[in-house]
């Protein structure tokens, strides 16, 4: 499996990088050695089932929790000892924001805006209205979804160089979600913002992500460009009579009740599928990311 993990980004220039992160809660392992580095201007979609360790990985990468072992760097600085400058260039939206509950949305945005040199007050005001947040309601009285929307506005208005979003889609209706994706896409493409976001809504990720990382049971199963992933992997189906010819190498292998076999296979260096794909009755099916994810995460 390790051959599939790319190590092209040197951790020296990466806005965000993790090396060998391990963590566990109450004796059960959540992260089992994760290496991950983001290139400047890239949009990395982190995908995984509930409980795969996505939030823990994000928190460890940002220095919000101390991992059992391994290290994380933000803008080249140790994540656990971030300076104020690095903090002002970074914005993180947790799944359940809790800070500053005693302020109204408007007060909070005015207050935190002072700490960010590139604060866009216009954007904050405008988006508050568009995303239907009552500006004078206490944050503590907002629903969890509204609370996360306010926090998304805070993160975007600060015009960060590094934007980290933990399951941002859950709080937004389809229209607002599309707006968020548009912001993320354009900022990455035009301002060079580096983005890490976790989600289980794969189609969001397919729109804006340049790369995906599959986190499964505390390990990265796959790290690849979105386009390359779609072009490089497919499902090979072999009828029972040919299943003995299945290639030894595959990302997943499922035998069906009738003896036929489904495998996730990869093109070789020349762009060819494994030889078994040419057998009579064999079939290659292109896979969307969601199908691929379901196949290999099962």
């Amino acid at each position: 499996m390790n051959a599939m993990l790319r190590e092209s980004t040197s951790t020296g220039t990466a806005p965000l990088a993790a090396h060998g992160l391990m963590h566990s809660y109450e004796g059960s392992s959540v992260l089992r050695g994760v290496d991950l580095a983001l290139e400047p201007g890239s949009v990395l979609g982190l995908i995984g089932r509930n409980g795969a360790g996505k939030s823990t990985l994000i928190r460890a990468m940002l220095g919000l929790l101390q991992p059992l072992s391994g290290s994380a760097l933000v803008f080249g600085e140790p994540a656990l000892k971030l300076g104020d400058d690095a903090k002002s260039r970074l914005a993180y939206v947790p799944q359940q924001p809790e800070a500053l509950a005693w302020l109204t949305a408007q007060q909070m945005l005015e207050y935190v805006g002072r700490f960010y040199p590139r604060w866009d007050a216009d954007f904050a005001g405008r988006t508050l209205e568009r995303w239907k947040i009552q500006p004078n309601k206490l944050l503590g009285k907002l629903s969890p979804g509204e609370r996360q929307r306010v926090d998304l506005i805070r993160a975007l208005a600060s015009q960060p160089e590094l934007l980290v979003l933990d399951e941002p889609a859950a709080a937004l209706d389809p229209v607002a979600r599309r707006e968020l994706l548009r912001e993320v896409a354009l900022r990455a493409g035009e301002s060079g913002t580096t983005v890490l976001f976790s989600t289980h809504i794969v189609s969001d990720l397919e729109r804006v992500a340049s790369e995906i990382a599959f986190l499964h049971e505390g390990r990265l199963l796959l790290r690849c460009g979105v386009d390359e992933t779609k072009e490089r992997y497919a499902r090979l189906w072999l009828p029972a009579s040919k299943s003995a010819a299945a290639p030894a190498q595959s990302l997943s292998r499922r035998r069906h009740d009738d003896g036929s076999l489904s495998l996730v296979v990869e093109r070789d260096a020349h762009g060819r599928w494994p030889e078994a794909a040419d057998l009579p009755g064999a079939r290659i099916d292109a896979l969307g990311l969601e199908d691929l994810f379901v196949e290999i995460a099962e």
């Binding site: 949009v43 707006e179 548009r182 896409a185 354009l186 990455a188 493409g189 035009e190 729109r207 340049s210």
Partner: peptide, 14 residues
């Protein structure tokens, strides 16, 4: 590129 990316909410690099 910006118009297409903005309209469809897709990555400008794409």
């Amino acid at each position: 590129v910006r118009d297409v990316a903005g309209f469809h909410a897709i990555n400008p690099m794409t």
